[in-house]
C-alpha cells in the first residue's frame, strides 16, 4: 500500500480548491434548479416612482383569482418610444418590435394543491399586497429565486383574522 504524503501547504491549496468548487457548484445548481430569471429584469422601483399603481400592470387582482401579469400591450402604453437606454429597455423594444409576448416567470408560489384567489384576499379580506409580496414594489430588480409562501404563514394570518381554517378551504 502506497502512502501519499502531502505537505501542509499542499493540503491548504487542495482544501481551498475543493471549497471554491463546492461553492461554484452550489451556485450553479441553484441557478439551474432553484433560480428564476425574468426575460426582462423588471424594475418595480422605477415604475412605482413614476406613480404607477400595482393595478396598472396587474389588472385582475380585484376581480379574479389571478392578479395578471403585464401584456405587451400594457407595456406599449408607456414604452412605445424607448424610455432610457438600459439593457432591459432594449430588450423590451425587441419584444415590442417582434410582437412576441413576454413570458414572465412566476415569482410567488403557494403549495401546488392550494387554491389561492387574489380577489378573495385583496378585495374581500382587505389585505395589502405587501402582506404576502413584501417590498417587491420597491425592488430595483427581480428576485433571483422564487418566493415560496408556506402554509405556516397562511395559517398564522388566518388565525389572526379568524377566517376559515378548514383544510379544503384552500386544499382543493
Amino acid at each position: 500500500m502506497v502512502k501519499i504524503k502531502i505537505s501542509r501547504n499542499q493540503f491548504l491549496v487542495l482544501l481551498g480548491c475543493t471549497l471554491v468548487f463546492v461553492i461554484v457548484l452550489i451556485v450553479v445548481l441553484r441557478i439551474v434548479w432553484g433560480g428564476v430569471r425574468q426575460p426582462i429584469a423588471f424594475n418595480h422601483q422605477i415604475h412605482a416612482a413614476n406613480d404607477l399603481e400595482c393595478l396598472d400592470c396587474h389588472p385582475y387582482y380585484e376581480e379574479q383569482a389571478s392578479s395578471g401579469r403585464p401584456t405587451l400591450e400594457t407595456c406599449i402604453t408607456c414604452h412605445e418610444e424607448p424610455l432610457g437606454e438600459s439593457n432591459a429597455e432594449r430588450k423590451l423594444i425587441e419584444y415590442i418590435n417582434s410582437k412576441e409576448e413576454i413570458k414572465w416567470e412566476r415569482l410567488y408560489d403557494v403549495p401546488e394543491d392550494v387554491y389561492f384567489s387574489h380577489r378573495r384576499h385583496v378585495v374581500l379580506g382587505n389585505i395589502e399586497c405587501s402582506t404576502c409580496h413584501g417590498d417587491i414594489g420597491e425592488s430595483p430588480r427581480p428576485p433571483s429565486k422564487p418566493i415560496k409562501i408556506k402554509m405556516k404563514k397562511c395559517m398564522k394570518c388566518h388565525e389572526e383574522k379568524e377566517v376559515d381554517n378548514d383544510c379544503i378551504a384552500c386544499h382543493i
Binding site: D166, C167, I168, H171
Partner: peptide, 11 residues
C-alpha cells in the same frame, strides 16, 4: 368538514 363534505387531502 362542517358542511358535510367528505374531504380528501392529497398531501
Amino acid at each position: 368538514n362542517r358542511e358535510g363534505l367528505v374531504a380528501q387531502v392529497y398531501t
